[in-house]
Design a protein around this nucleic acid. Sequence first.
DNA 1: AACTTACCACTACACTCGGAGTGGTGTCAA
DNA 2: TTGACACCACTCCGAGTGTAGTGGTAAGTT
Lengths: 191, 191
Amino acid sequence: MRQNPERRTALLDAAIEVLADQGARGLTFRAVDQRAAVPTGTASNYFPNRDALLTQAGRRVFERLDPGPEVIGESLALPRTRASVDRLMHEMVGRITAFPSGHLAMLELRLESTRRPELRAVLTEQIKTNLQENIDFHLDTGMPGDADTVVHLYLALNWLIIERLTLPDLFDEARTDALITSLVDQLVPPR
Amino acid sequence: MRQNPERRTALLDAAIEVLADQGARGLTFRAVDQRAAVPTGTASNYFPNRDALLTQAGRRVFERLDPGPEVIGESLALPRTRASVDRLMHEMVGRITAFPSGHLAMLELRLESTRRPELRAVLTEQIKTNLQENIDFHLDTGMPGDADTVVHLYLALNWLIIERLTLPDLFDEARTDALITSLVDQLVPPR
DNA sequence: AACTTACCACTACACTCGGAGTGGTGTCAA
DNA sequence: TTGACACCACTCCGAGTGTAGTGGTAAGTT
């Protein structure tokens, strides 16, 4: 078992790309090696089996999807209004669609977790935490709306992102933006 | 190319099951044969290649997800109130989660369509039509809310279903029901 | 009633490909 | 010198494809 951490994360990032464009079944050691431009057999040396590769890739996606401190900072500077929420939601959707392989890989992992209880446990845990953090952030900063508001936004926006990533011709970009705004209008109280 | 229609749809239904539990990459002629409990090679005789199998499976999912006339009939009998919408949405989510392989297969197909333009075209078309039908139905029957309302519900409920199907421990059944109701309350005007 | 035709279920097989796993060699640094 | 790692090579195996071939059956034909 090799330990070089940069190489390890490089392999995980490659795994995410592979997940996104070949699907969970396409995630093989070979494919990861190739994607990471690393000699055949390397991934074998870093991960004992596919399961480990899968779950570690799952964690890695979350690391990369995490908004940086600068985004947090900006949010704190905004007034506590619905307009700010609107802006934050646009920012979030933009950030996620800018890293499509991350979200697509997540979806693949979700589907794969249907068959792998261990993976499901990891994902459930991560997403539960993530959602709770969002709720806490929202409430702590005093943005308008309650915990349910955040969950409602989470639900609708996630599917909107899926729609954009998988069937881009259904809603074009302008429509997507309009939908985000109208959703926020409906779901978030004015102040 | 064989033509027996019952056998053909039996194969397609088997394909849906395979999609749901092995993923798009797992959809092979062999797997379909096995699932349909039919001799090896049969699927090969009915579909020229995987692409055809995939797109026809996509159409088949829609056929099976279509609410029967009795559901339509019941809807028409309801008063035009938010409470009725609430009831309809519960019914819909229930109907879809009762056929999990259908929805999971759809998701797999969506992901697969990332790599297959032809499949993407088919899905986009189907879903666009489906959504439009829902909007028309909603408006024609005079239920409260406009076209955007329907789209909003579509977005949020779809993700809620995904959540139920892939990570059932995140929101339990009671929470899911509560979320449907609170979403309807937010998104649909009172009358 | 015998014959022909056409379709289909089912079987078998040859061939390819991709992947797993592992042992071995080279290289660099402590 | 030793240990950790990069890199390479080789073998084994299973899964999948496509298709040719066999047998059965039902419907039409004379």
